[in-house]
Design a protein around this nucleic acid. Structure first.
Lengths: 340, 340
DNA sequence: ATGAAAGCGCTAACAT
DNA sequence: ATGTTAGCGCTTTCAT
């Protein structure tokens, strides 16, 4: 079917050509000190001539620095997950790390062994993007079994302990959810409804908290799936009710579904209905009308997670990673009620 | 900082506990024949008791079946790429394969060695999601160096040879682009403009072809970046021109940008302006108004790419993978011109 | 059906 | 500054 692939060149081939021992070659490719400049040059020339590239498996097996990170997640196509992954990738690429992605099935139960089996070997560095129960479970397993090589982002469904700083990178979406709710209340809305994505309990908690603070009984939460379509379906009843004047949505996609439902129900936005999302996804600013939403720096979180992991692995203090705090961005889908 | 991680259990530990040689353990974990049922059971019990999991690096090094695929791409957050990746993941997960993702920088030039260096070892199985020049280049390198272990999806900028079937999985977006253009022409539009994404030459070629067939001189192509924002900017001039009544866009995101630009310019859709996208992204059906677009089965292509690779690797004929052909989905952003 | 020996390509520890 | 010797954990031979 295809040309025979020649036997790959090994460290010994390079050594022979350069007239040194294989160990010296190893030193050169690992930038070890204690190599004479002339020797180094000879070896490098041989490497170039032969097109030698080290075998990662052999390296890992021999106990060399791994330079790879396994990312555990359930869905690489959700906006938040995809952006976080991007952030991890960016940072990992810059640091010369390889990324392994292991996708878990959200509908499946995983034993401890299943989770550990996703790593290339015991104790391999891992980042969990924890946005649901499955990934949160995986995070807990790894945290328990190999805390020194594990970092997570997100971390819902979790009573976060005081000292999770050294392994959990997350956004304070709870506080900003409360802020968004208060903003709507301050515009004069009698109450705010919440359309929930599966998981992301923090946002819901922030919303509930703000209502409680205002002495308002929280309306029943409406549950949606992750897709725009499911949000549309879920919102049909809500938008048909003229008493409903403000809806906080678990993310932008849901908000788009609500907006479409409102359009179909002939309710004007924001005149009849205010809608707020989460994510500030690329489309939000260019929607008609532009969506009021919350900027969530998932990419920064991804970068931060990688940097944190690297610090645990290599010790030493690289600059402490930073990222933007969540921020409410008021655009044109929110305003005072009853301007029909 | 964390509990000491105990030394991982190896095949020898299992062997000792089960009272057999390590080789027999190897046979059991590889489902080799020639193992007595009783022995097999003993070994399996020992594995369970010890929580043994094979070390992938050791396996790979010893020449065992690799069961991993490296995916090369430039941007995991673009819709088409993300969906293709998802398709690959789905199929790989079902087959028990591990996914390595290697992200290339679209702004960088890669030598042959750079590309090969992205693989864990020489000859490692790879899938290239080729949507731009960088990835197309990588595809060509791997195709040349290790055709037997390489498959690609997409493949723009490429004079596709006759017999690429056994390594290239792609969608015929060129034909459907022509079809979309003809559809607009048939509605009475004098011409159709094209807003191009970077790359995806096929779509542009289909558009040009349809215009040429109709004896219409193609208007100048307008170029956009990948983001909605860049499309908005790029479309400003186009939507300001009342002579422009139909715009075919390189993908849905660009179409959304154009729609927003049209809205700001007070041009009604589809009354004043028809807009068509590509992708049928999740939002398309729920946009206001719902977007006319082309269904592109990227996820199916991803699955197909993986299956094709597996066939090359393992021989034997698994069922030939299939996926949906591109299809024009007429919704509400397109119609006859001049209905203002 | 099972075991023993050899070696995959590399790095670590110990030479010199 | 460089070379030599052992493995890392596993899968191939090739025995038995």
């Amino acid at each position: 079917m295809s040309a025979a692939e020649p036997k790959p060149v090994s460290i010994f081939d390079v050594a022979k050509l350069a007239g040194v021992s294989h160990q010296t070659v190893s030193r050169v490719i690992n930038d070890a000190p204690m190599v004479a400049d002339a020797t180094r040059a000879k070896v490098k020339a041989a490497i170039a001539e032969l097109g030698y590239r080290p075998n990662r498996s052999a390296r890992a097996l021999a106990g060399g620095a791994v330079r790879s990170v396994t990312v555990l997640t359930t869905d690489t196509s959700l906006y938040g997950t995809a952006e976080t992954l991007r952030g991890i990738e960016d940072a990992a690429r810059a640091a010369g790390f390889t990324i392994l992605v292991s996708v878990l099935d959200p509908d499946q139960d995983y034993t401890e062994a299943d989770v550990l089996g996703r790593l290339p070997h015991d104790g391999a560095p891992a980042i969990v993007i924890a946005h649901d129960e499955t990934t949160t479970g995986a995070m807990q397993v790894l945290q328990r079994k190999q805390a020194g090589a594990t970092v997570a982002t997100g971390g819902e469904h979790l009573d976060i302990e005081q000292h999770a700083d050294d392994w959990l990178v997350s956004l304070d979406d709870r506080t900003v959810a409360a802020r968004a709710t208060r903003y709507l209340l301050s515009m004069g809305h009698a109450t705010v409804h919440y359309l929930a994505i599966p998981s992301k309990a923090n946002r819901q908690a922030g919303w509930a908290e703000a209502l409680a603070d205002a002495g308002i009984e929280a309306p029943e939460v409406v549950h949606s799936g992750w897709t725009v379509g499911s949000a549309y379906e879920a919102a049909l009843e809500l938008v048909a009710d003229p008493e409903v004047t403000a809806i906080l949505c678990g993310n932008d996609d849901l908000a788009f579904g609500v907006l479409y439902a409102a359009h179909r129900a002939d309710r004007s936005v924001p005149g009849d209905l205010s809608v707020i999302g989460f994510d500030d996804s690329p489309l939000a600013a260019y929607h008609v009308p532009p969506l009021t939403t919350v900027d969530l720096d998932f990419r920064g979180v991804g970068r931060g997670a990688f940097e944190l992991l690297r610090q645990k692995l290599e010790g030493g203090s690289h600059p402490r990673p930073t990222w933007r705090s969540p921020e409410l961005i008021v655009r044109e889908t929110s305003g005072p009620p009853g301007r029909r």
